[in-house]
Design a protein around this nucleic acid. Structure first.
Lengths: 208, 208
DNA sequence: CGCCAAAAAGAACGGTCATTCTTGTACAAA
DNA sequence: TTTGTACAAGAATGACCGTTCTTTTTGGCG
């Protein structure tokens, strides 16, 4: 078997495991078992466990990119693009076929107090997410869809927060309504910053 | 030495360690060392590690209660009480003298995929938080400070989300501005649901 | 076929951990 | 002082883990 093929299989299995149980559950043994390999077989490809974990985060970010920034989710149309991106982002793990949660979001929290290269990789992914949000927000402002005086960093923080809340709510608190609640939050926060045309009444939060 | 005193010392050390490095870092050895005890000495008080972890979450919730629901943070004054609670809640670990993050918030995420009694304890604490928020929100609605048609569960979800975002932002992403951003988010969401008196203009997000 | 390099298997080592068991110690009552 | 009891120390066990090492297998090429 070609080494590349095996390496890819290891990473796919590792990504699934990280999605299902978190990056901290990644061990040589757990990945080897699910990949029908021996421990040594995995180590041959990733001499240090951190290499494997970093690579798993890399493929996770790559999968996120292909899922959320693909051509069909066109970017550059201002507010509609931002809203479409948020809707896709919140469900991207399902759309990408992952069995559980977002490995990056989980890793960001799990590694809070564990400095090292894996933590750096998770932080880097978060930075990519933040920059993506900022880019979309700026575009929406440029196109006069969002208020000129919008605090870009604050709005990006809020939207990233909704993503993290949705992650926790779905996979830890098991709230079956998390999707709807997250969408509602997005709608409300966007509405409060949207440029209002045609004198339409500003919608406020309605009853449950 | 009385057993009760030692037990209390174990729990204090465990709480500090959980705050500084997360509940998953709690081991008999790590707690014993910091408490100047032998491993067996700790085991004598908590035969199973889960007992120790559950007890640590219990004292954490107890400390939260004394810090955030104390008499000086008077409850029952409607919206001002809610806002005061949120401001205290977000910083409660510092106010309570804990060395790091909120052990409960961290545990909720860490235990996402690890069923068992510890996970249940963390989920129970989250439920207490949620009920506290709902109580305060309902009071603010009753007192005509928040709109009658406010979606209570949704607003509680949003506020819990801001708390979690603030937790992640502070301790994992090391954003020195997390406090201010969380406060801003609270202000914005409350403003969008507040009953407006005296025809005051509705404030929108300003800034950079 | 034999040769060779890559790939994978498998054994082994040192470490940490939860858990159990036995031993030692301090202290109160008899 | 002797006894009994709660408390803590400490050794031992078995499991898992990361890492290193050696051995076996595989597949392509002469």
């Amino acid at each position: 078997m070609s080494g590349q093929v095996t390496r890819t299989r290891i990473l796919r299995v590792g990504l699934d495991l990280a999605s299902a149980e978190g990056l901290c559950r990644i061990t040589f043994g757990s990945v080897a078992g699910r990949a029908s390999l021996s421990k040594g077989g995995v180590v041959a490809h990733f001499p240090h466990l951190d290499d494997l974990k970093r690579s798993i985060l890399d493929v996770a970010l790559d999968l996120w990119s292909r899922t959320c920034l693909g051509v069909d989710t066109g970017v550059g149309n201002g507010l509609p693009s931002l809203i479409r991106y948020l809707n896709v982002w919140i469900r991207w793990t399902r759309r990408a076929g992952l069995p559980g949660s977002c490995p990056i979001a989980q890793a960001i929290v799990e590694l809070s107090f564990l400095p090292g290269p894996v933590r750096e990789a998770a932080a880097a992914a978060e930075s990519v997410w933040r920059q993506t949000l900022i880019m979309l927000i700026r575009d929406a402002i440029d196109k006069r869809h969002l208020l000129q005086e919008t605090d870009v960093a604050q709005l990006a923080w809020d939207l990233l927060g909704i993503y993290l809340s949705h992650h926790v709510s779905t996979h830890s608190l098991r709230d079956p309504d998390a999707d709807r609640k997250a969408q509602f939050s997005v709608k409300r926060i966007v509405a409060s910053l949207e440029v209002i045309n045609e004198g339409a009444a500003h919608p406020r939060q309605g009853g449950q």
